Computed example of a mutant assay.
Amino acid sequence: MAQINEAEVLDALRECYDPEIPVNIVDLGLVYGLNINQEEGHVDVTITLTAIGCPMAGEVMEEIDMRVRQVENVKSCKVDLTFDPPWSPERMTEDARWELGLV
């Protein structure tokens, strides 16, 4: 059975950017969960956004779905949006902090 490579899924997610901050969603700490069902070729991604009222939420979720489905052996993807716990800048990686000049 062909396997889905988690690192490739994360690389695909790194191609998705928050519409207000020029840093990818992984380094921003917006990806709260990643579950890969190898048997079904399915990926569940749980994300949050930096702002609850973000008018671009639908577009961000569509882009995540599109990019994850491009990963080899992925047959389907579901993107869930949560605001629990709320996002905070402490979730950012050190790379993201450098990129934004916060270090």
Results as ranks from 00 to 15, higher is better:
Glu40Trp: 07
Pro55Asn: 05
Val71Met: 14
Ile36Met: 08
Val71Ala: 12
Ile52Leu: 10
Met61Trp: 00
Val68Pro: 08
Asn73Leu: 15
Gly58Thr: 13
Val31Ala: 07
Asp27Asn: 12
Gln70Gly: 15
Val74Asn: 11
Leu49Gln: 00
Val60Ser: 01
Asn37Met: 10
Gly29His: 09
Gln70Tyr: 10
Glu59Gln: 14
Val45Ile: 12
Asn37Ile: 07
Glu39Ser: 10
Glu62Gln: 12
Glu59Gly: 12
Val45Cys: 07
Glu63Thr: 11
Gly41Pro: 06
Asn73His: 15
Gly41Trp: 01
Ile52Ser: 13
Gly58Asp: 14
Asn35Arg: 12
Gln70Phe: 14
Ile36Leu: 05
Gly58Pro: 09
Ala51Asp: 06
Arg69Gln: 15
Leu49Glu: 03
Cys54Asp: 03
Ala51Gln: 11
Gln38Pro: 01
Asp44His: 12
Gly41Asn: 07
Asn37Tyr: 08
Val45Ser: 03
Arg69Phe: 12
Val43Cys: 02
Gly53Arg: 01
Ala51Asn: 10
Ile36Cys: 07
Asp44Asn: 11
Val71His: 13
Asp27Leu: 12
Asn73Thr: 14
Glu40Met: 09
Val31Thr: 03
Ala57Arg: 00
Asn37Trp: 05
Leu30Phe: 09
Asn37Cys: 07
Gln70Trp: 11
Gln38Ile: 04
Gly41Thr: 00
Thr46Cys: 03
Thr46Gly: 04
Glu39Met: 08
Asp27Glu: 12
Glu39Cys: 06
Gly41Val: 03
Pro55Arg: 04
Ala57Tyr: 01
Val71Tyr: 10
Val45Trp: 02
Val60Met: 02
Val68His: 13
Gly53Lys: 04
Gly41Leu: 06
Val71Trp: 11
Thr48Pro: 00
Thr46Arg: 04
Glu72Lys: 15
Val31Leu: 10
Leu28Ser: 06
Tyr32Gln: 01
Val43Ala: 05
Leu28Tyr: 05
Val31Phe: 03
Pro55Gln: 06
Arg67Ala: 06
Leu34Pro: 00
Leu30Ala: 05
Glu63Phe: 09
Val60Asn: 02
Gly58Gln: 10
Thr50Ser: 05
Glu59Lys: 15
Glu40Ala: 11
Ile47Arg: 09
Ile47Asp: 01
Val45Glu: 07
Gly58Ala: 11
Asp27His: 14
Ile64Pro: 04
Val43Met: 00
Asn73Val: 15
Arg69Gly: 14
Leu34Glu: 01
Asn37Gly: 09
Asp27Thr: 13
Val60Ala: 00
Val74Pro: 08
Glu72Cys: 14
Glu59Thr: 14
Leu49Lys: 02
Asp44Pro: 07
Ala57Met: 03
Val45Lys: 02
Glu72Val: 15
Ile52His: 08
Val74Arg: 07
Leu34Arg: 01
Ile64Ala: 15
Tyr32Asp: 01
Val60Thr: 01
Ile47Phe: 02
Asn73Ala: 15
Gly58Lys: 09
Leu49Ile: 01
Pro55Gly: 02
Val45Met: 08
Pro55Lys: 06
Leu28Lys: 14
Asn37Ser: 12
Ala51Val: 12
Glu39His: 04
Ala57Ile: 01
